[in-house]
């Protein structure tokens, strides 16, 4: 039964070691999928390469389905899983700023680390930028403190809001993802190819 660190089967140090191994696997797959190239990542916004949508949503539905199944077969206790806290104002404004960073910089933090690992100098510049952004946030934090913690909703799950079972929601999620995959295949055929 998992999660192992919560049930005392794996101690803190063991969990950190496991995080390193999970990181290796995550970085390997990101690079294999082509997420070390901004030209490939940016394709999602211009319709010439939808690898981001395909990988991202396949990962999300695989993970979400897996958690529901593991909970059903009592391999994992879903109640012990960390659910991200939700603060609507800071979450929405923060994500909008990240979206701008994504389209201007071409990476997100995880993909920039992966790209820097294979020698992309622009990825190293992006990482320098991330650090600067964090420093600016840290040093100006008192200005945003109220906004940052405004309207706390706690560890809110979408299935609680909708009032449906996790399994049913995951089914809808899979259907929406399949619809999205079909749509992007159609769009990609219509859009002029970009060489990179």
């Amino acid at each position: 039964m998992g999660p192992l660190t919560e049930l005392g089967i794996l101690n803190h140090e063991g969990g950190i070691l496991m995080a390193f191994i999970i990181g290796i696997a995550f970085g390997f797959i990101l690079e294999q999928a082509g997420f070390s190239s901004t030209r490939k990542l940016a394709g999602v916004f211009y319709g010439y390469d939808f690898v981001v949508i395909k990988v991202f949503f396949t990962a999300a539905i695989t993970g979400a389905t897996g958690l529901v199944l593991m909970n059903y077969f009592e391999v994992i206790d879903l109640k012990l899983i960390y659910v991200n806290r939700f603060f609507p104002p800071s979450a929405i404004v923060g994500a909008a700023i990240m979206g701008a960073g994504f389209i201007i910089g071409g990476f997100c933090p995880g993909t920039s680390v992966c790209a820097a690992a294979i020698g992309k100098i622009d990825a190293m510049a992006f990482i320098g930028g991330i650090l600067l952004g964090i420093i600016i946030f840290a040093e100006t934090f008192p200005l945003f403190k109220g906004f940052f913690t405004a309207n706390p909703k706690g560890n809110m799950k979408i299935t609680e809001v909708l009032g449906i079972k996790d399994g049913l929601f995951v089914l809808f999620f899979i259907l929406i993802a399949l619809g999205a995959f079909a749509t992007v295949h159609f769009i990609q055929k219509k859009v002029k190819k970009v060489e990179y």
Partner: peptide, 13 residues
Amino acid sequence: GGILFGFGASLGR
């Protein structure tokens, strides 16, 4: 882009 992402990710948790 990095600055925006670093700031946005801090604000957006």
